[in-house]
């Protein structure tokens, strides 16, 4: 069953406060939570227990795919589909294929990194419950937010509220769906 609210969100003023709060919440046993900041805060994702991402792997796969595509395409075109004798040089002149191989490795790798990152982030996502919180528009300016989600097994409206107030936030808000 869907919980009646999305979660509770606490608002902080400084990067140091949000990192400390996120760390405390993680120590307290909360796992379904996220922190929000206007710029990447060092150590914040680690504080909520998020250490490794797969973007580099996706980029590598993209790059290797680009390389294979480029070489395969050039080989097939110049040797099989449309062989042309240019000054008696071999049809399979691999040194001449290097440039296009490099370009397509970079192209596929770069697109994979960029769009792979957006995809695992679940973007584009036009609606998110947090956008219902009026002060959340400051998450892109100068405020830092910690949201404990209602789906967390430890979540309880009252105890979680009490816990969040113990962290000394500016404000705690309920997040409707």
């Amino acid at each position: 069953m869907r919980p009646p609210i999305y979660g509770l969100v606490a608002e902080f003023d400084t990067p140091a406060e949000i990192v400390a709060a996120a760390r405390r919440a993680h120590e307290e046993g909360y796992r379904k939570m996220d922190a929000y900041s206007p710029f990447p805060v060092e150590g914040l994702s680690e504080a909520i227990g998020f250490h490794k991402d797969n973007v580099a792997l996706i980029c590598l796969v993209g790059g290797v795919l680009g390389l294979a595509t480029a070489y395969g395409m050039q080989y097939w075109i110049n040797v099989i589909a449309y062989p042309t004798n240019v000054g008696g040089r071999p049809l399979h002149s691999w040194p001449a294929f290097i440039v296009v191989c490099f370009e397509m490795t970079v192209l596929f790798g770069g697109l994979a990194a960029a769009f792979g990152m957006l995809a695992i982030n679940g973007l584009p996502m036009p609606y998110h419950p947090l956008f219902n919180v009026p002060s959340f528009s400051f998450a892109s300016r100068d405020k830092f937010f910690l949201c404990i989600e209602a789906v967390d097994p430890k979540f309880d409206r009252e105890t979680t509220y009490k816990f969040l107030s113990s962290l000394g936030p500016r404000m705690i808000t309920e997040v409707p769906h």
């Binding site: 991402d53 970079v106 982030n121 996502m125």
Partner: peptide, 28 residues
């Protein structure tokens, strides 16, 4: 903005992707 909300998880992946793009654009 694609619904960007500044999530710490998002920033983490974002920074990795940004660095990778820089790494690829350098030889480019």
């Amino acid at each position: 903005a694609l619904g960007w909300r500044g999530s710490a998880r998002h920033w983490h992946r974002y920074e990795t992707a940004y660095l990778l793009l820089a790494g690829l654009a350098t030889p480019l």
